[in-house]
Amino acid sequence: MPRILGIYDLPGKTAAAITQIRARGYTEIITYAPAPFTEVEDAVDPKPSGVRLYTLIGGLAGVVTGFALTLWMANDWQIAIGGKPFSSIPPYTIIAFELTILFGGLMTALGFIIKGKLLQFKRHDVYHPRFSAEDFGVVVTCQSRDVPELESLLRAHGAMEVTLVES
């Protein structure tokens, strides 16, 4: 299927183009941006990133591990220290807190790698260093008959260049 690439210089134009392309029923859209712009990201997909689930799972695993580790170790070989109970919740809360942050942070990083598909090292054929300069790229997959319509849509929103990419 042919893909058509439009190059933009500003996030507002990019977002407007994407919104209209989506309104016309095209769903296979990939956007390249030189920096984070929420208007562009929300135009492509308004749903929040799934990374948050990873943070939650990591944080919960951390707090459970923190309390389980300290309580089990303190009771596995009991040593009386300063007349305090073996299962002393206040000091163990510190360990549980630190592990919540540690596991939560590491899982967030893992979520980023998975959700951002960062282990796919091979770059897309349409990727160009200009997207890490200051240009925005919008790639839409379509049927051959839709190429003229998409081209005029992209140009109508101020595309600097429009390129047909044969697959």
């Binding site: 990939i30 390249y32 562009v40 990201e41 959700k115 951002g116 796919q120 770059r123």
Partner: peptide
């Protein structure tokens, strides 16, 4: 595999 796609920026921001 960073290319600055929407998915990547969204995940990065989050």
């Amino acid at each position: 595999g960073w290319q600055g796609t929407t998915n990547q920026w969204k995940a990065h921001n989050r």
